[in-house]
Nucleic acid binder design. Structure first.
Length: 332
DNA sequence: AAGATCTTCAACCGCCATGTG
DNA sequence: ACACATGGCGGTTGAAGATCT
């Protein structure tokens, strides 16, 4: 079945010629692209002066413009940083290529999708990871600990969570990557167990706030454990002890399915200083009892992916029956 | 050198959500 | 409320080029 918009007329298909590209660019530059279905018609009328017609449907024009002709497109291969961003966001959002592409200026959803299918997917599989769930493939679970450790110890990943909270009641903290203290082990608390990991961290790197624009919460080396893709919490609290202040960020998983830029909120983040500790001059590291940064999460819906946990952590840390939860995924 | 196989990626398909009359 | 048009998205296809045998 063809597009409705092109069912009535003879439509050209297949690869675009440079001449067609030129016509489309000239049309867009002159008229904009408010209605794609009018593009071929008007472009045809426009060029009928020179006896040429685009003969493409509006959908095809839109696709060509968005994926290839747009002037703000970044050409060339993906950088390692872009690749890591794709992996990190895919871990959260799954195959939402358009959402992922929004975090990569100059890249299209089609490009991201193709890159994922042709490169990243294979790379993850070769590392023994399931590209859909980012968990270890069952065939790799037995010998997993070393692999995972290496991956995450070397990871320089950036985890970006967009939000759009007007007048967010927060203070701004901004640091460069290099200025941050080395990642500390953390603790994840669940209703039924407390587990820890040597190579996970959820240090808050930077929050860029403005009163009316989306801001980003950047996490360094966001761990498998703390990454929202591996649990289904109502909220995640991230703490970071820094300059005698304990920063606590609460991430409410409210609407990961937001589609429009206007409602672009994917998670809601509240951040506040732990003023109690600050005013009393208590060293939070002592409060935490182990000198560790602490991450706590609430798991009201209990869809925590213990299968992943099992695969990541060495068994000495955990005493928990994983079987019943093993296959649970976090469905947005 | 030539055919087979693999890889990449532009383009299409089909579905869904939204807008409009 | 309904039908239709349109935009947007993810999945899939297939042509073209690269690599292998």
């Amino acid at each position: 079945m063809g597009h409705r918009c092109c069912s009535k007329q003879k439509i050209k298909r297949g690869l675009w010629s440079p001449e067609e590209d030129e016509k489309l660019i000239r049309y867009i530059n002159t008229h904009g692209h408010k209605s794609w279905s009018s593009v071929p018609k008007f472009a045809g009328r426009l060029f009928s002066i020179i006896y040429v017609c685009l003969q493409r449907c509006g959908k095809s024009c839109r696709l060509r413009w968005i994926n290839y002709l747009r002037p703000d497109l970044k050409r060339g291969s993906f950088t390692a940083e872009e690749e890591q961003i794709i992996i990190d966001i895919h871990r959260i959002l799954g195959n939402r290529w358009a959402q992922i592409a929004k975090h990569l200026p100059g890249r299209t959803d089609n490009e991201v999708k193709n890159f994922w299918n042709s490169c990243i997917k294979k790379k993850l599989i070769s590392q023994g990871l399931d590209p859909q769930t980012h968990t270890l493939l069952s065939s790799h679970r037995r010998s997993s600990a070393c692999t995972i450790s290496n991956i995450h110890q070397n990871s320089n990943s950036i985890f970006i969570v967009s939000s759009n909270i007007p007048n967010a009641p927060v203070e701004t903290t901004s640091q460069t990557f290099s200025s941050l203290p080395k990642a500390q082990p953390n603790i994840v608390q669940t209703p039924s167990s407390i587990v820890s990991s040597e190579y996970q961290t959820s240090t808050i790197l930077s929050n860029k706030f403005s009163s009316d624009l989306p801001y980003e919460l950047l996490l360094e080396n966001t761990s498998n454990i703390c990454s929202p893709s591996y649990m289904n919490p109502e909220a995640v609290e991230l703490s970071n002890y820094e300059n005698n202040v304990n920063w606590v960020s609460r991430v409410n998983v409210e609407d990961f399915s937001a589609q429009t830029p206007e409602e672009g909120t994917q998670v809601q983040v509240h951040q506040e200083k732990n003023k109690t500790c600050e005013s009393k001059g208590i060293d939070v590291r002592e409060v935490n009892n182990k000198g560790n940064l602490e991450t706590s999460a609430s798991f009201e819906s209990s869809n925590f992916d213990f299968g992943l946990l099992e695969s990541v952590l060495t068994s000495e840390f955990i005493s928990h029956d994983f079987n019943c939860m093993d296959e649970l995924a976090w469905n947005f």
